[in-house]
């Protein structure tokens, strides 16, 4: 029989595996909500992974690392924003390039830094690694089942959930969020309602990039136990792009979605080996493709996809 302990272990592993996805997804939601499909998530996460790791290496402080990762993601998103909003370049092409550039840049600098170290491993200090450990709150974490289920994750997970909740509140409960959504749906209507389309596009895309950056830091700092490894984001950014669709462009749903996708990623270790591993890896993309297809069959009313996604807005074209 499957024991409770086994299930708990599985859930905890799923949440941990879903955490980087959560950042990537929420960041991308902000961008897509203003109508900009940013295929550069993988790249922004990679740059965040690099800046976060580097700051951690220098400062031995987790908060500093996260801020640096946030800043790195923001700067990379700014490249995308300037080119697609300011210069009205094709979003797909710029996004893909940002991915290639970002991953390449992180790897390039990473290799350079590894070469600078004496041991040929670029590694975070033990002090910082201890800061990144799963939290342990006396009493609370010791409650049976609940303690393990709720109070046993690392600081990134809680940060991610808080960011997702804030973004959900921002998008659906504030005026700015309402305006933001209108931009992604129908920028001409937003413009006519005297919303500053360009300004809000920049704000959302750049903030979204920053959030992706933190997700990247999780990949570089936690997944490999504090040792820098090339290609540390390893496709999680792309899964995040898929997850946005699965989460129906809602940050709150993204919390659940990222843990489900995280579960799919760790399921292979908990499942009998009769089912091929490739199947579990493929599942997120199959589910997402199915969601996309079903939504389109149901028509515009059923799909949550921002109507103007992928198109740039030039006022004189209206």
């Amino acid at each position: 029989m499957i024991s409770l302990d086994f299930i708990l272990k599985f859930i905890v592993a799923a949440v941990a595996a879903g955490t980087p996805l959560l950042f990537g997804t929420v960041g991308e939601i902000l961008s897509e909500k203003v109508g900009h499909l940013n295929l550069g998530v993988e790249g922004m996460m990679s740059i965040g992974a690099l800046t976060g790791f580097m700051a951690g290496y220098g400062s031995h402080n987790l908060a500093v690392s996260m801020i640096a990762a946030f800043a790195g993601g923001m700067v990379s998103a700014l490249i995308y924003a300037v080119l697609t909003i300011g210069f009205m370049a094709n979003q797909n092409v710029i996004g893909l390039t940002l991915t290639i550039f970002g991953v390449g840049f992180a790897n390039f600098v990473g290799v350079y830094m590894v070469g600078k170290t004496s041991s040929n491993t670029w590694q975070l200090s033990a002090d910082l690694i201890s800061q990144m450990k799963s939290i342990h709150i006396p009493l609370l974490s010791d409650i049976p089942v609940i303690g393990k289920l709720i109070f046993s994750y690392d600081p990134f997970t809680y940060t991610g959930i808080i960011i997702a909740l804030i973004c959900g509140w921002y998008l659906f409960k504030t005026k700015a969020g309402l305006n933001t959504q209108a931009i992604g749906e129908n920028p001409a209507a937003a413009d006519a309602a005297s919303i500053q389309v360009t300004k809000w596009k920049f704000i959302n895309i750049v903030l979204g990039g920053g959030i992706c950056g933190i997700g990247g830091a999780y990949c570089s700092m936690i997944i490999n136990g504090g040792v820098w490894i090339s290609d540390c984001v390893g496709g999680l950014g792309w899964i995040s792009v898929a997850l946005v669709i699965f989460a129906a462009w809602r940050p709150q749903t993204a919390i659940l979605g990222s843990f489900i996708f995280g579960a799919l990623r760790v399921l292979k270790y908990y499942m009998p080996s009769v089912i091929p591993i490739a199947f579990f890896n493929m599942l997120p993309f199959i589910i997402t493709a199915a969601v996309l297809l079903i939504a389109s069959i149901r028509g515009t009313k059923g799909s949550h996809i921002p109507e103007n996604l992928g198109f740039n807005y030039f006022r004189e074209d209206r």
């Binding site: 504030t174 005026k175 309402l178 305006n179 209108a182 209507a189 937003a190 309602a193």
Partner: peptide, 11 residues
């Protein structure tokens, strides 16, 4: 929501 869109003040 369309009516409120773009108006000043809090939601």
């Amino acid at each position: 929501e369309n009516i409120e869109l773009g108006t000043p003040g809090k939601k």
